[in-house]
């Protein structure tokens, strides 16, 4: 059976999921529960909380996430290529070089446009 290799993953997943749940449940018997309004209010260095936190963040977080995603897909292509590299030989080198050079254009463009800056 071919997915016998992955039975340990299933067992481990169950144990790893149970660990926080069981610990929290047991701790319930030992921890105090004396709540009051100011204890449960958001941390604000002692100042009264008057509104929800500001939610307008700079768009550069979005740009970083997009560029990350593109490089992430690129690395996904690099891993099987690296595994098979000796079998692919020079042909493999050239095809990956073309792939990477096209992407490096994008990288240089991002650099020139200042998308990698964090001013």
């Amino acid at each position: 059976m071919s997915h016998a290799q992955y039975i340990p993953l299933l067992i481990f997943l169950v144990i790893a999921l149970l660990f926080p749940l069981v610990t929290l449940a047991i701790a319930k018997f030992f921890r105090p529960a004396k709540y009051n309004k100011s204890k449960l209010s958001p941390y604000e260095c002692g100042i009264e909380v008057d509104k929800e936190p500001e939610r307008n963040f700079h768009v550069r977080y979005y740009v970083v996430a997009v560029i990350f995603l593109i490089f992430d897909v690129e690395t996904v292509f690099l891993y099987p290529w690296a595994v098979k590299y000796r079998a692919l030989g020079l042909f493999g080198f050239v095809e990956m070089a073309i792939f990477l050079i096209i992407l490096i254009f994008g990288y240089v463009y991002a650099w020139k446009k200042g998308a990698l800056e964090w001013e």
Binding site: A27, Y35, S41, E52
Partner: peptide, 25 residues
């Protein structure tokens, strides 16, 4: 282990509970 478990009033309770699990697993 014996510390109080504080859930802030403004927190989203379900996600607040899920986050540490998503970190440790």
């Amino acid at each position: 282990f014996s510390k109080e478990d504080i859930i802030p009033t403004m927190a989203d309770k379900l996600v607040y509970f899920l986050a540490p699990t998503l970190a440790i697993v």
